[in-house]
């Protein structure tokens, strides 16, 4: 029983054979900005450059979306998710939805 899940954005896992196909799996999270980080980012916004607080926040949030997708795939009995795509959209002022989707498959 493999509990880990291979993630790739290729159409199949190279060197492995796809034996079963489970269809679409997805995970999403909607995140609002953090007040503390927002103030720091506001200051940084005057000078310009990278807003590190936001970079970290979005990486963390995207990780959660991927985790949810992975959970869904594992629950189906898959051991890999292929053809993963990310999508980001601003839903309300100050909040973003991070969405990850892919195809759950079983590989040999």
């Amino acid at each position: 029983m493999i509990t880990d899940c291979i993630l790739t954005n290729l159409e199949s896992v190279p060197g492995r054979q796809t034996i079963e196909h489970y269809g679409l799996v997805s995970g999403s999270t909607v995140r609002a900005k953090h007040v503390g980080r927002d103030i720091a980012a506001g200051l940084k916004n005057i000078v310009g450059g990278e807003l590190k607080g936001y970079t970290e926040l979005l990486i963390e949030a995207r990780g959660e979306a991927v985790d949810r997708m992975k959970q869904q795939a594992l629950a189906m009995g898959a051991n890999a998710v292929v053809n993963i795509r990310f999508s980001t959209s601003s839903v309300t002022p100050g909040a973003s939805e991070l969405y990850a989707y892919g195809t759950a498959v079983k590989i040999a």
């Binding site: 980012a41 940084k44 916004n45 005057i46 000078v47 310009g48 990278e50 936001y54 970079t55 995207r62």
Partner: peptide, 10 residues
Amino acid sequence: SASMVVAPDS
């Protein structure tokens, strides 16, 4: 995956 958030200066 990797990302970067940037903003222009004023």
